[in-house]
Design a protein around this nucleic acid. Sequence first.
DNA 1: CCAGATAACTTGCACAGTTAAGTGATCGTG
DNA 2: CACGATCACTTAACTGTGCAAGTTATCTGG
Lengths: 172, 172
Amino acid sequence: MDGEQGSRGEAARWLDADERLTWLALVSVLVRLPSALDAQLQRDAGISNFEYQVMAGLSEAPGRTMRISELAALAEGSLPRMSQVIARLEKRGWVRRTPDPGDGRYTLAIMTDAGWAKIIEMAPGHVETVRRLIFDPLTKAQPRQLHDICRRIMRAIDPDDQCLDRLDRPSA
Amino acid sequence: MDGEQGSRGEAARWLDADERLTWLALVSVLVRLPSALDAQLQRDAGISNFEYQVMAGLSEAPGRTMRISELAALAEGSLPRMSQVIARLEKRGWVRRTPDPGDGRYTLAIMTDAGWAKIIEMAPGHVETVRRLIFDPLTKAQPRQLHDICRRIMRAIDPDDQCLDRLDRPSA
DNA sequence: CCAGATAACTTGCACAGTTAAGTGATCGTG
DNA sequence: CACGATCACTTAACTGTGCAAGTTATCTGG
């Protein structure tokens, strides 16, 4: 951020009427969409959206096993937060911990059979919700537009972010 | 997940590869954009994004005055949350409370001169950040695409939401 | 005019998340 | 081998938020 934002310094760069409405619409989605997804998961599975992301990530990992720090990066959360999330999931019997035999500093989070059963149970409902809230209401062309817009915004937030690599697959 | 969920009775409705990447990109924006905006405001003005929305809304109201419940609806927050936020802003000297002379059940939040000075001070930096993170990286056509996409998603989340009215201005 | 219902707000409790300090394991250098 | 530095994780203190109960003000029906 350029520090020269003296209130009197640069007059231009304000938002015009259209930009303002676009911004308001985006803010609404930023607030409402996460809370709608959380509500569905909480109601149908008793789990938060963030916890779901962790479970989903673990379920796709080889051996259904991942390091806590890897999971934190994957789910874009801090390490302490991930530590507590894993503790909650462990208490519910869906995950167990083991020190990494290769390097004792790491802790491996391993999804149990009960955890696997849980995600098998809740995934269809969650995916259905994502589809209903995002893809169903969009036209055929809009998902691609949205994808490009999101990538551009992400690049503006942090140009050298690991996540960008996962998203940069035009695939067309 | 390996994508074999469809066999569990539910019809397909799974996400294909493109949809999946779009979804991942959107999730990243949903997580990162609010936190980037919060970071800028916290750093430059010592205020949260939510508090800023409240100050901004109040600053535009006639007489720089609004009912707490109106503010809560405007900023899409709960009434208890707004009550606490106003208490914090009051403690900082930017807002004061008065019972509504017309109906004593309401409480009016009134922006003080210090609050007005504060928003004059921080608005340019915040708007600049919004422009830099959202509008600058987009092509000329994309803001309109984004606006339409957001309105469709909002309508899917809650078709009879007050907020939609504010957003439904094609203006072209 | 009075009692109950309702509305707007406030408060108390529980809990998730961030930051900073603490713990244990591993690496690098002499 | 030893000692400090670094790394991954855990724990603790604090803040913010949602929910439910409490408080005060207004409306409604008799």
